[in-house]
Design a protein around this nucleic acid. Sequence first.
DNA 1: CAGGTC
DNA 2: ACTGG
Length: 478
Amino acid sequence: MPGDPAAAPAPLPPPPPPSAAAGPAWRLLGTSREQLCLEFTLPTGQSFRWRRTGGGEFTGVVGRRVFQLRQDGGGGGDVAWRVIGRARGEDEARDEEALAEYLNLGVDLAALYAEWAAADARFAKVAPLIPGARMMRQDPVECLFQFICSQNNHISRIHGMVERLCSTYGTPLPLIDAGGGDVAEAAARAEQQQQQQQPAWEVGRKRSLSEVEAAACATAGGPGGGGPLAPEPEGDGGSGSGGDEAPGTPRGAAAAPPPSGDAPPPRRGRKGARAGGAAAERDAPSSSSGSSGGAGGETTAPEPFAAGAAAAAAAAAAAAGAAHFAFPTLDQLSAATEEELRALGFGYRSKFITGAAAALRARPGGGDAWLRALRGATAAEAAAALEELPGVGPKVAACVALFSLDKHDAIPVDTHVWQLATKYYARHLAGKSLTKKLHPEVAAAFVARFGERAGWAHSVLFISNLRQSQALMAGAGD
DNA sequence: CAGGTC
DNA sequence: ACTGG
C-alpha cells in the first residue's frame, strides 16, 4: 500500500498557467483528484471524443463547445479548463455549467468510493489506485452513435470513425478569438496531435498507458505525482505531422474507392477551395425524408446530393481550418447514405447508422427528444427501447444508458466484465458462456454488491483490470 | 479466431 | 452470419 501522505513529492507548478500561453485563460473547476481524475475518466472508453493535446492536457467537444482540460499536479489535483471553440449562439457564461453537467460534478464521487469500499473488500483494495474515475453524462445521440460504431472494433479505429462522422456531417466549431490572435496556433496544435492518443478501454493493448497515468493521476503516494502541469505549455512547434490533406473524401455518395484494409481512409479536408464556415452551419432541413420503419437492413437512398452537400460543406470547412466539430445532429446524420459511410470506412456498421438515424427521426416528437425522455424511464425500459434500434444490442444499450441516460446501475457486459463477474461477483455463473439471457444476471450481481450506482463502480473495477493486466504484461517481459 | 449484433 | 486481426 503506497500510502504516504506526508511524502510530498516535489514542488509542483501552480495550478493554471496564468496567461502564459495563447488562447483563453484557464480557470479552475475546484475539484480534487478524488472527485475527478481526467486520466481515468476521459480516455477510458466512455467517449471517443477526447484526445491528448499536450502534456496531460485533453481537448474535446462537449455539445457545441471545444474544451481543454488539464489536471493540476500539485495540491489536490484540481482541474483547469478553458473553452477554445464555441458555436455561435452558445453563451460563454454557460461554459462552466455545460462542463459541470457533462462531468456529472453534482455527484460526490469520493463518498461513493467509500460506500463501495465498505461493501466490497476487493474494491477497497484496488480503488485507491484508480481515484476519480467519474461517469460522464454525454449527449444521448452522440453516445448512441459512438457505441454503434464501437461494436467489433478497436478503440483507435473507433476514434477515427467518430471523428470522421463529426468532420463530415457535423457543424464546425469556430475557434475563439482570444484577443491574442494565436487562435490558429491552438488549432494547429490540437489538430496535429490527433493520432497520438492511446485510450485504455481495450485490454489486449500492449502499449504503455502506465507512463501517462503516472503523469496525471498517480496518487496515493505513487510515482511522485508526476508532472501534470508541465511548465512547457506549447513549445512544440511545427512538427509536420504528416499529410493531413488527404485527397478523397466522400463525394456526393459517388463511387469512392473502398478503403478495404483498415487504413483510415480520408481524413477530412479536401481541396481548400473556399473558406466557408458558414456554408456548413445549416442543419439539413430535409424534413421527413420518408424513410421509416426500415429498421433492419433498409437501404435508404433519399437525396443523394443532400448527403453530398452536407459532406462537401463540412469538408470545405475542415479544409478552411476548422479543427473541431459538433457531433452531427440527427438531421445532419440523416444526410448520410450507407454507401457514403462505407466509403468512409464504417463497414457493415454503415447500415446501422443510417438505420438508427432513420428510426429515431421517425419517432414522434423527434429522435432526440425520444432518446432524452429515456432519462426518466427505468433501466429496463430504456434498454428495451434502445434495443429496438438497428445495431443496438444489450452491450451498446447498456453503454448508452450508463453514459448518457442517467442509468447509473446499467452494466455494459463485455467479455472483460463477464470475467470479472464470474470471478468475483457472480461465481455461480463461472463456466457458463455469456448469452443474452445472462446479461441481466451479471448486471444484477453488480447491483447487489454496489447498489444503485453499480455502473459507476463497475467502471472503476474495469479500469483497474486494465491497469492490472497491463502491469502484468509490462512486468512479464513478454 | 475474437467480439458484438443479427 | 458478419468483419477486421
